[in-house]
Design a protein around this nucleic acid. Structure first.
Length: 561
RNA sequence: UGGCCCAUGGUGUAAUGGUAACACUCCGGUUUUUGGUACCGUCAUUCUAGGUUCGAGUCCUAGUGGGCCAACCA
């Protein structure tokens, strides 16, 4: 219902238009075309959801195509990581393709272009060619090699292919227009010599096709109907079409390139070079550090694929520059985690609480609901005893009535347990409170149904029994950058905005039911936030990552004072 | 001193020539054994100037502002 009433984005409108102008639904085909030279990040998630979402919407196949035309940068490791990330996000590609699958076809077409007088071998240095290229405001000039004979071009190109020349000595160029207002049309390079092994073709080739020559022709070979890319490729469209003009036959579908604006997320950077810098300078601990905007980082942080997909759906797709506030991403992960995570209790900043009228040595197991959002998650038992930990921030000697927590002479409920009253506290020589003494009402036990248990007190605290608590490493993550758009300042480097407090590692105390938690499992630590078990955990040591905190209106009230 | 793209609340996106809306954020409130969730409410938007039209956020022109384009990267 909402599906039919939801408005179309401009890409879907283009497709609908094509459909009403003669395309059949069977003609639709899409592709996600990553270069395997790095890890996927949140920006790629938009493209993935767009292309695979279109596939789902129109019941059309979507290829996963690796744009692997540069063996100097590309590696199998990235191919594997990309496949894992796309799968994790919840999408299935139709076929797995590689631009390198088409090297022979591309070569044959290039030979044809030479024969047609539309491509030539240039034997200048890159500096010489750059000088001839002109600028956006001045036309370029023709290369002295532009009018070589077809025979000479053919033989040089074959020599290039056969490895007879050193890197940088020759390139194959399309013969288009050195005076075009579009710089990309000024005789673009189609092939360069690279004596490097390729992760798939090994040393079969020592010439490699450039992006522009490869991409559109690959779309054509795969019969991709709509080739979607980001806005910076808009000027490439003219060239995309020119190359297609050289090879298409009228009985086959002709792919269309259309461009959309890249989504920018606040408080982060996304370029491979910058992310690599964060890794290399040990600002973060690897590409999957939970602070990284990579898909693997978000996964390790505890994000769910659903929350990322919902986020991408919400931000939509358009053509204008944008900076999406990270709070929207956080909203979506909270929204999903709220529904699916079991609640547990953990104390991150412990203060000892002694219940003076609770029998020495006694312990009892209290029933605790696993989720108020999902009854099917059932319940568990948590141990209670005379000595507990509560959060330091949950006790004050005295406070005004806005403070719903524990203060001397005041009452609170211990979640799933009893109502207690603070009687006194002990301080160390520095004046810090190190212990709170309280009394409890034995008849106020949660769920017991007694009138005392039904009494309402304003505050409810989470706690753990000291004797039963499990110590765990807890990693508290915050934004990596203090500026919302760290890499757009002309006079400042993005590294100047690194948040020094993006990771705080502490020891917390969690209820014993967590002892058996497995890597990747997600929980809500009640009143604190969402956490997941990190892969650094071992059988004798739990490590938790904070995915995101709960919304905290108390923190806002405090900030205002 | 060129070409191309873009311009709607604080943010993102819709409105397809006919009442400017939805989500997030912010702020306020109700409920609550999580200061969570849920629910209700408040504030706030068509870059400017002309033109076309009965009617313009939408079409046209100009201006302004932002972005992209001179790798043997993708």
């Amino acid at each position: 219902m909402s599906e039919t009433s939801k408005s179309l984005n401009f890409i879907e409108q283009i497709i609908e238009e094509d459909l009403s102008n003669g395309y059949s639904k069977n003609d639709l085909r899409f592709r996600f075309p990553p270069e395997p030279n790095g890890y996927l990040h949140i920006g790629h998630a938009s493209s993935i959801c767009l292309n695979f979402g279109l596939g789902l919407r129109y019941d059309a196949p979507v290829n996963l195509r690796f744009d692997d035309t540069n063996p100097a940068k590309e590696e199998q490791e990235f191919v594997d990581a990309i496949k894992q990330d796309v799968t994790w996000l919840g999408f299935k590609w139709d076929t797995e393709r590689y631009a390198s699958d088409y090297f022979q076809q591309l070569y044959d077409w290039a030979v044809q272009l030479i024969k047609d007088g539309k491509a030539y071998v240039d034997s200048q240095t890159s500096e010489e060619m750059a000088a001839q290229k002109g600028t956006p405001t001045e036309p370029g000039v023709d290369s002295p090699f532009r009018n070589r004979s077809v025979e000479e071009n053919l033989s040089l190109f074959e020599g290039m292919k056969n490895g007879e020349y050193k890197e940088g000595t020759h390139v194959l160029r399309a013969k288009i227009d050195m005076a075009s207002t579009n710089m990309l049309m000024r005789d673009p390079i189609m092939y360069r010599i690279l004596h490097k092994a390729h992760h798939r073709t090994n040393t079969d080739w020592c010439i490699y096709p450039m992006y522009d020559w490869t991409h559109g022709e690959s779309d054509y070979i795969e019969q991709v109907s709509h080739s979607l890319c980001t806005l910076e490729f808009l000027p490439h469209r003219e060239l995309y079409d020119w190359f297609l003009d050289q090879v298409t036959s009228p009985d086959k579908l002709r792919p269309k390139q259309r461009e959309f604006a890249r989504r920018n997320l606040s408080h982060t950077v996304v370029s491979k070079r910058k992310l690599a810098q964060l890794v290399e300078q040990n600002i973060v601990n690897g590409w999957d550090d939970p602070r990284m905007p990579t898909i693997s980082g978000l996964r390790r942080r505890g994000y769910t694929p659903e929350s990322i997909r919902n986020f991408v759906d919400t931000i939509g797709i358009a053509k204008r520059d944008n900076l999406i506030d990270v709070s929207l991403l956080e909203f979506h992960v909270r929204e999903h985690l709220n529904k699916i995570t079991p609640r547990v209790m953990g104390v991150l900043d412990p203060l000892k609480l002694v219940i003076t009228n609770y029998p020495e040595g006694q312990e009892e197991w209290l029933e605790a609901e696993n989720s108020p959002e999902d009854e099917s998650l059932g319940s568990r038992q948590v141990p209670f005893s005379k000595e507990l930990y509560i959060e330091k921030a949950d006790f004050k000697e005295e406070a005004n009535k806005k403070f719903f927590r524990l203060k001397l002479g005041g009452e609170v409920r211990l979640k799933n347990g009893y109502i207690i009253k603070a009687e006194s506290c002990t301080k160390n020589t520095e004046g810090d409170i190190v212990e709170v003494q309280c009394t409890y009402d034995p008849k106020s036990k949660s769920g017991s149904g007694t009138p005392e248990s039904l009494r309402r007190v304003k505050g409810t605290l989470h706690w753990v029994s000291i004797k039963h608590a499990v110590a765990a490493e807890v990693r508290l993550y915050d934004r990596l950058f203090t500026d919302e758009s760290p890499d757009t300042h002309k006079d400042k480097d993005f590294m100047d905005f690194i948040n020094p407090d993006s990771l705080k590692t502490i020891t917390g105390y969690v209820e014993p039911s967590l002892k058996s938690a497995s890597v990747g499992e997600r929980f809500q630590f009640q009143r604190i936030g969402y956490f997941c078990v990190d892969k650094d955990s071992s059988s004798d040591k739990l490590v938790f990552n904070r995915t995101v905190g709960l919304r905290d209106s108390w923190a806002k009230i405090q900030q205002k004072n």
